[in-house]
Amino acid sequence: MTTTSSLPEHAGRRCHNVVNAYHSTVYFSPDLPAEMAKLGITDPGAAYFLTRAAALGAVGPGTVAATFYNFNYDLIARHVPHCWSVVSPEATLEARLRAADTTLRRLLGDAVDAPEMAEAAELALRATEACTRHARPLYAAHADLPVPDAPHLAYWHAASLLREHRGDGHLAALLDAGLDGLEALVTHTASGRGARQKWVLATRGWTVDDWTAAQDRLRERGLLDADGELTEAGVRLRADLEDTTDRLDRAPYEHLGAEGVARLTELATGYATTVLEAGAFPADLTGKD
Protein backbone atom coordinates (compact mmCIF):
# COMPACT_ATOMS: atom_id res chain seq x y z
CA MET A 1 0.00 0.00 0.00
CA THR A 2 1.42 3.40 -0.94
CA THR A 3 0.67 6.62 0.88
CA THR A 4 1.47 10.26 0.26
CA SER A 5 3.37 12.03 3.02
CA SER A 6 4.34 15.65 3.52
CA LEU A 7 7.43 14.53 5.47
CA PRO A 8 10.87 13.38 4.28
CA GLU A 9 11.19 9.60 4.01
CA HIS A 10 11.37 7.89 7.41
CA ALA A 11 11.25 11.25 9.23
CA GLY A 12 8.63 9.96 11.66
CA ARG A 13 10.65 6.81 12.35
CA ARG A 14 13.81 8.80 13.01
CA CYS A 15 11.94 11.13 15.35
CA HIS A 16 10.33 8.24 17.19
CA ASN A 17 13.64 6.44 17.67
CA VAL A 18 15.31 9.32 19.51
CA VAL A 19 12.18 10.27 21.45
CA ASN A 20 11.82 6.65 22.52
CA ALA A 21 15.35 6.64 23.94
CA TYR A 22 14.21 9.29 26.43
CA HIS A 23 11.10 7.29 27.31
CA SER A 24 13.01 4.03 27.75
CA THR A 25 15.52 5.33 30.30
CA VAL A 26 13.22 4.59 33.23
CA TYR A 27 12.85 0.92 32.34
CA PHE A 28 16.62 0.38 32.51
CA SER A 29 17.09 2.50 35.62
CA PRO A 30 17.81 0.98 39.03
CA ASP A 31 15.40 3.57 40.40
CA LEU A 32 12.38 1.70 39.03
CA PRO A 33 12.87 -1.65 40.80
CA ALA A 34 13.93 0.28 43.90
CA GLU A 35 10.64 2.20 43.92
CA MET A 36 8.67 -1.00 43.32
CA ALA A 37 10.54 -2.80 46.11
CA LYS A 38 9.36 -0.12 48.52
CA LEU A 39 5.81 -1.15 47.61
CA GLY A 40 6.40 -4.87 48.09
CA ILE A 41 7.32 -5.96 44.55
CA THR A 42 10.84 -7.29 45.06
CA ASP A 43 11.43 -9.12 41.77
CA PRO A 44 13.25 -6.55 39.62
CA GLY A 45 12.39 -8.48 36.46
CA ALA A 46 8.69 -7.85 37.02
CA ALA A 47 9.00 -4.09 37.42
CA TYR A 48 9.07 -3.41 33.67
CA PHE A 49 5.88 -5.09 32.58
CA LEU A 50 4.02 -4.28 35.81
CA THR A 51 4.70 -0.55 35.56
CA ARG A 52 3.70 -0.42 31.89
CA ALA A 53 0.66 -2.66 32.39
CA ALA A 54 -0.55 -0.62 35.37
CA ALA A 55 -2.06 1.93 33.00
CA LEU A 56 -4.54 -0.77 31.96
CA GLY A 57 -5.74 -1.22 35.55
CA ALA A 58 -5.77 -4.46 37.55
CA VAL A 59 -5.94 -6.71 34.50
CA GLY A 60 -5.11 -10.38 34.36
CA PRO A 61 -2.14 -12.14 32.74
CA GLY A 62 -3.97 -12.69 29.47
CA THR A 63 -4.41 -8.98 28.84
CA VAL A 64 -0.79 -8.28 29.70
CA ALA A 65 0.41 -11.06 27.39
CA ALA A 66 -1.80 -9.77 24.57
CA THR A 67 -0.58 -6.19 24.83
CA PHE A 68 3.10 -6.99 25.41
CA TYR A 69 3.16 -9.73 22.75
CA ASN A 70 6.69 -11.09 23.19
CA PHE A 71 6.69 -12.08 26.86
CA ASN A 72 6.18 -15.72 27.81
CA TYR A 73 2.70 -15.99 29.30
CA ASP A 74 3.97 -18.23 32.14
CA LEU A 75 6.36 -15.49 33.30
CA ILE A 76 3.56 -12.94 33.39
CA ALA A 77 1.21 -15.33 35.19
CA ARG A 78 3.75 -15.76 38.00
CA HIS A 79 3.26 -12.10 38.89
CA VAL A 80 -0.21 -11.14 37.61
CA PRO A 81 -2.78 -10.90 39.14
CA HIS A 82 -1.01 -11.57 42.47
CA CYS A 83 0.87 -8.28 42.23
CA TRP A 84 -2.38 -6.31 42.35
CA SER A 85 -3.07 -7.75 45.80
CA VAL A 86 0.25 -6.25 46.92
CA VAL A 87 0.17 -2.87 45.19
CA SER A 88 -2.51 -1.00 43.30
CA PRO A 89 -2.07 0.06 39.66
CA GLU A 90 -2.39 3.68 40.80
CA ALA A 91 0.49 3.34 43.29
CA THR A 92 2.52 1.54 40.64
CA LEU A 93 2.08 4.43 38.19
CA GLU A 94 3.10 6.91 40.87
CA ALA A 95 6.22 4.85 41.58
CA ARG A 96 7.08 4.83 37.87
CA LEU A 97 6.77 8.61 37.65
CA ARG A 98 9.00 9.05 40.71
CA ALA A 99 11.57 6.77 39.09
CA ALA A 100 11.36 8.73 35.85
CA ASP A 101 11.94 11.97 37.75
CA THR A 102 15.01 10.79 39.65
CA THR A 103 16.43 8.97 36.63
CA LEU A 104 16.12 11.90 34.25
CA ARG A 105 17.46 14.39 36.79
CA ARG A 106 20.49 12.18 37.34
CA LEU A 107 21.13 11.59 33.62
CA LEU A 108 20.40 15.10 32.32
CA GLY A 109 21.27 17.38 35.24
CA ASP A 110 20.37 21.03 34.71
CA ALA A 111 18.96 20.28 31.24
CA VAL A 112 15.68 19.17 32.82
CA ASP A 113 14.98 22.79 33.77
CA ALA A 114 16.19 24.43 30.55
CA PRO A 115 13.72 26.17 28.17
CA GLU A 116 14.44 23.57 25.48
CA MET A 117 12.87 20.88 27.65
CA ALA A 118 9.58 22.75 27.75
CA GLU A 119 9.82 23.17 23.97
CA ALA A 120 10.38 19.43 23.50
CA ALA A 121 7.39 18.68 25.73
CA GLU A 122 5.17 21.07 23.79
CA LEU A 123 6.17 19.59 20.43
CA ALA A 124 5.77 15.99 21.55
CA LEU A 125 2.41 16.69 23.17
CA ARG A 126 1.25 18.42 20.01
CA ALA A 127 2.17 15.32 18.01
CA THR A 128 0.09 13.15 20.34
CA GLU A 129 -3.02 15.15 19.48
CA ALA A 130 -3.29 13.06 16.30
CA CYS A 131 -2.83 9.68 17.98
CA THR A 132 -5.91 7.44 18.01
CA ARG A 133 -7.18 5.06 20.68
CA HIS A 134 -8.98 2.46 18.57
CA ALA A 135 -7.20 -0.92 18.49
CA ARG A 136 -4.29 0.58 20.47
CA PRO A 137 -4.81 -0.63 24.05
CA LEU A 138 -1.54 0.40 25.66
CA TYR A 139 -1.63 3.82 24.02
CA ALA A 140 -5.29 4.32 24.93
CA ALA A 141 -4.65 3.41 28.56
CA HIS A 142 -1.71 5.81 28.82
CA ALA A 143 -3.64 8.55 27.04
CA ASP A 144 -6.09 8.57 29.94
CA LEU A 145 -3.31 9.47 32.40
CA PRO A 146 -2.78 13.12 33.39
CA VAL A 147 0.07 15.12 31.91
CA PRO A 148 2.64 15.92 34.64
CA ASP A 149 3.36 19.57 35.35
CA ALA A 150 7.17 19.46 35.26
CA PRO A 151 8.41 19.89 31.67
CA HIS A 152 10.85 16.97 31.78
CA LEU A 153 8.06 14.69 32.99
CA ALA A 154 5.54 16.14 30.55
CA TYR A 155 8.00 15.31 27.78
CA TRP A 156 8.51 11.82 29.24
CA HIS A 157 4.72 11.34 29.31
CA ALA A 158 4.38 12.48 25.69
CA ALA A 159 7.28 10.24 24.69
CA SER A 160 5.47 7.35 26.38
CA LEU A 161 2.31 8.07 24.40
CA LEU A 162 4.23 8.19 21.11
CA ARG A 163 6.06 4.99 21.99
CA GLU A 164 2.89 3.09 22.89
CA HIS A 165 1.05 4.38 19.81
CA ARG A 166 3.79 3.10 17.52
CA GLY A 167 4.17 -0.07 19.55
CA ASP A 168 0.50 -1.00 19.31
CA GLY A 169 0.67 -0.52 15.55
CA HIS A 170 3.84 -2.61 15.37
CA LEU A 171 2.08 -5.52 17.07
CA ALA A 172 -0.60 -5.40 14.39
CA ALA A 173 2.14 -5.54 11.75
CA LEU A 174 3.76 -8.54 13.46
CA LEU A 175 0.45 -10.35 13.63
CA ASP A 176 -0.23 -9.65 9.96
CA ALA A 177 3.25 -10.97 9.09
CA GLY A 178 2.51 -14.24 10.87
CA LEU A 179 5.21 -13.84 13.50
CA ASP A 180 4.50 -14.93 17.04
CA GLY A 181 6.08 -13.09 19.95
CA LEU A 182 9.28 -15.10 20.14
CA GLU A 183 9.70 -15.29 16.36
CA ALA A 184 9.50 -11.49 16.31
CA LEU A 185 12.31 -11.32 18.87
CA VAL A 186 14.45 -13.86 17.04
CA THR A 187 14.19 -12.03 13.71
CA HIS A 188 14.84 -8.68 15.34
CA THR A 189 17.94 -10.03 17.07
CA ALA A 190 19.11 -11.62 13.81
CA SER A 191 18.84 -8.19 12.15
CA GLY A 192 21.46 -6.84 14.57
CA ARG A 193 19.07 -4.16 15.80
CA GLY A 194 17.21 -6.10 18.47
CA ALA A 195 18.23 -7.19 21.94
CA ARG A 196 20.83 -9.92 22.29
CA GLN A 197 19.58 -13.46 22.83
CA LYS A 198 20.99 -13.72 26.35
CA TRP A 199 19.15 -10.54 27.39
CA VAL A 200 15.87 -11.69 25.82
CA LEU A 201 16.05 -15.05 27.58
CA ALA A 202 16.85 -13.37 30.91
CA THR A 203 13.97 -10.89 30.75
CA ARG A 204 11.16 -12.34 28.62
CA GLY A 205 10.71 -15.76 30.18
CA TRP A 206 11.81 -17.91 27.24
CA THR A 207 14.29 -20.81 27.30
CA VAL A 208 17.09 -21.77 24.93
CA ASP A 209 14.87 -24.61 23.69
CA ASP A 210 12.07 -22.13 22.97
CA TRP A 211 14.51 -19.95 21.03
CA THR A 212 15.81 -22.91 19.02
CA ALA A 213 12.28 -24.05 18.18
CA ALA A 214 11.41 -20.54 16.98
CA GLN A 215 14.52 -20.53 14.77
CA ASP A 216 13.46 -23.86 13.28
CA ARG A 217 10.02 -22.49 12.45
CA LEU A 218 11.58 -19.47 10.79
CA ARG A 219 13.93 -21.67 8.76
CA GLU A 220 10.94 -23.63 7.51
CA ARG A 221 9.53 -20.33 6.21
CA GLY A 222 12.83 -19.43 4.56
CA LEU A 223 13.41 -16.45 6.85
CA LEU A 224 16.54 -17.71 8.64
CA ASP A 225 19.50 -19.63 7.28
CA ALA A 226 21.37 -22.51 8.91
CA ASP A 227 23.58 -20.09 10.88
CA GLY A 228 20.63 -18.18 12.31
CA GLU A 229 21.12 -15.19 10.01
CA LEU A 230 18.29 -13.53 8.14
CA THR A 231 17.87 -14.68 4.55
CA GLU A 232 17.00 -12.20 1.83
CA ALA A 233 13.35 -12.99 2.53
CA GLY A 234 13.94 -12.38 6.23
CA VAL A 235 15.58 -9.02 5.56
CA ARG A 236 12.65 -8.02 3.35
CA LEU A 237 10.18 -9.09 6.01
CA ARG A 238 11.86 -6.96 8.68
CA ALA A 239 11.97 -3.98 6.31
CA ASP A 240 8.33 -4.45 5.40
CA LEU A 241 7.43 -4.62 9.10
CA GLU A 242 9.04 -1.25 9.74
CA ASP A 243 7.42 0.29 6.67
CA THR A 244 4.00 -0.98 7.78
CA THR A 245 4.61 0.34 11.28
CA ASP A 246 5.58 3.72 9.81
CA ARG A 247 2.33 3.82 7.83
CA LEU A 248 0.24 2.97 10.89
CA ASP A 249 2.11 5.60 12.91
CA ARG A 250 2.03 8.45 10.36
CA ALA A 251 -0.64 10.59 11.98
CA PRO A 252 1.23 12.20 14.91
CA TYR A 253 4.18 13.25 12.76
CA GLU A 254 2.06 14.47 9.87
CA HIS A 255 0.10 16.50 12.42
CA LEU A 256 3.29 18.02 13.82
CA GLY A 257 4.52 18.89 10.33
CA ALA A 258 7.96 18.79 8.76
CA GLU A 259 9.33 21.76 10.68
CA GLY A 260 8.02 20.51 14.01
CA VAL A 261 9.28 16.98 13.40
CA ALA A 262 12.72 18.28 12.47
CA ARG A 263 12.90 20.42 15.61
CA LEU A 264 11.64 17.64 17.89
CA THR A 265 14.14 15.24 16.32
CA GLU A 266 16.93 17.76 16.95
CA LEU A 267 16.00 18.23 20.59
CA ALA A 268 15.34 14.54 21.18
CA THR A 269 18.67 13.59 19.58
CA GLY A 270 20.46 15.81 22.06
CA TYR A 271 18.72 14.21 25.01
CA ALA A 272 19.19 10.71 23.62
CA THR A 273 22.92 11.33 23.14
CA THR A 274 23.26 12.64 26.68
CA VAL A 275 21.49 9.71 28.33
CA LEU A 276 23.42 7.21 26.21
CA GLU A 277 26.73 8.79 27.17
CA ALA A 278 25.62 8.80 30.81
CA GLY A 279 25.20 5.02 30.69
CA ALA A 280 21.41 4.83 30.70
CA PHE A 281 21.44 1.54 28.75
CA PRO A 282 23.63 -1.58 28.94
CA ALA A 283 26.50 -1.33 26.48
CA ASP A 284 25.89 -4.84 25.15
CA LEU A 285 22.09 -4.68 24.99
CA THR A 286 21.67 -4.88 21.21
CA GLY A 287 23.40 -6.82 18.47
CA LYS A 288 24.13 -10.49 17.95
CA ASP A 289 25.54 -12.88 20.53
Rank of each mutant, 00 (worst) to 15 (best):
T25M: 02
G12D: 13
H16T: 00
E277T: 08
R238N: 05
R13W: 04
D31S: 12
P8T: 07
A177M: 11
E266L: 06
E183W: 03
R78D: 07
G167F: 09
R52Q: 10
R166S: 14
L179F: 08
L138P: 07
D31L: 12
A184R: 00
R98G: 05
G234A: 09
A213F: 13
L75M: 14
H165R: 09
A173R: 10
T286D: 14
D176Y: 09
A99K: 05
D43T: 11
H142V: 02
A251V: 04
L276G: 03
D74L: 07
P8L: 03
L125C: 10
E116K: 12
D246N: 04
H79D: 04
F68A: 08
A54F: 05
R204H: 06
P30A: 02
A278G: 13
A118Q: 11
C15S: 13
H16G: 14
L153N: 06
E277L: 13
A143S: 01
G287N: 05
M36Y: 10
A233S: 10
T231P: 14
Y73A: 11
E129N: 07
F71M: 15
S6M: 13
T203E: 09
T2R: 15
D144G: 12
A127R: 08
D249G: 05
P148C: 09
A99G: 12
V275M: 06
V208F: 11
L108S: 04
D284R: 08
T265G: 01
A172I: 08
A54K: 11
